[in-house]
Design a protein around this nucleic acid. Sequence first.
DNA 1: CAAACGATTTTCT
DNA 2: GAAAATCGTTTGG
Length: 201
Amino acid sequence: MILPEPFYTRTDVVTIAKELLGKVLVTNINGITTSGMITETEAYAGASDKASHAFGNRRTARTEVMFAGGGVAYVYLCYGIHHLFNVVTNVQDTPHAILIRAIEPLEGIPEMLQRRRMEIVKPSLTSGPGAMSMALGIHTRHTGLSLQGPEIWIEDRGIKLSKNKIVSATRVGVAYAAEDAYLPYRFFIQDNKYVSKAKGL
DNA sequence: CAAACGATTTTCT
DNA sequence: GAAAATCGTTTGG
């Protein structure tokens, strides 16, 4: 089943980040369906989180979509090339978001390989936020889209993860965020090959 | 209007 | 393991 809007509009972004592990992210772009199980996420707690683009309720053209109610996509460009896919959570005017950092490929693997210009499947296909977005065909033009489909959505396929498989750690690439850089807001599935190897621990 | 920066990835040593 | 690449967004003049 597709995760309904109330799943996203809850107020505890950390809880939602943990629950997204094991769910399936699906895209249908230009008629091509690709999907994968979410293996790694990071929570960004809006106004009170120095690592968030919306820290202190900073509103710009780019961050505006985070101020919408939960259940929409926030896609932005980093380092000029990488499209990073986030899920907006919480209620309207509270800019919380969850960065999806890695997935384990399920459907449309040939298409993902083609988009990444790779020939064989290996963990680098979808481990890491920029790589994952490219494999799924996610583009900044998809920012603001509803996660109820028809182009991007997240499904619960009944995958159960035992709690000791969920590991928390510090977030990646947020050293500039001072004390908030040490918050354990990164979550991933232990022993899964499709978790980004980026520095972080 | 111009300059600096980064929630990363890839490639080379 | 370390360093470079690269451009939209943000910030300052």
